[in-house]
Amino acid sequence: MINIEYWLIFSSLLFAIGAYGVLTRKNAIVVLMCIEIMLNAANVNLVAFSSYYTTLHPGLGADASGQVFALFSIAIAAAEVAVGLAILLEVYRRYQTIDVDKINILRW
């Protein structure tokens, strides 16, 4: 079994990539995709910790709640994407663009 550190490094990289994308990309769809990447990084963490649970806490017995949480998270992410895309559609319909730099009415 490979060390849990590898999973964690992997998920951190994934999270960083996602965050970078969220902060730099102009296209709102891409931003949304990057958010998904960040979410999945969290899911990787959940699953990883869950499968190493017995190794990390000997004597406590197995616990699958981490995996269950990951499933929850995936379901919620799907719902979120639906809402996010709907908003983006509405934004596009109103402003004829989905460039996040142009959509800056959320200010003083």
Partner: peptide, 17 residues
Amino acid sequence: MRKAQTGNVQRYASLIV
């Protein structure tokens, strides 16, 4: 102070990070 609120969501997110 409110001038700091540019409306650019990505700027907000960067500040959060």
